[in-house]
């Protein structure tokens, strides 16, 4: 392998590592976003006034 290829390999390794790290952080933020949606729905459900039972018939 020539010198140019080693230099390219070193820089590409760093670039790939940084991109992988950013992708991991993005996936984590996506999970947090989904969990937040879930908890917001749960909080709204609890806050909704309970309906009084009505006699049927």
């Amino acid at each position: 392998m020539s010198g140019e290829r080693y230099v390219a390999a070193a820089y590409v390794v760093v670039l790939v590592a940084v991109l992988a790290y950013v992708a991991i952080i993005a996936a984590k933020l996506g999970r947090i976003d989904r969990e937040l949606d879930e908890l917001t729905a749960l909080a709204r459900e609890r806050q909704a006034p309970e309906r009084e039972p009505v006699r049927v018939g």
Partner: peptide
């Protein structure tokens, strides 16, 4: 370690 190893090889 990885970039150093590549440099060592070159």
């Amino acid at each position: 370690l990885v970039t150093g190893s590549i440099w060592a090889r070159a």
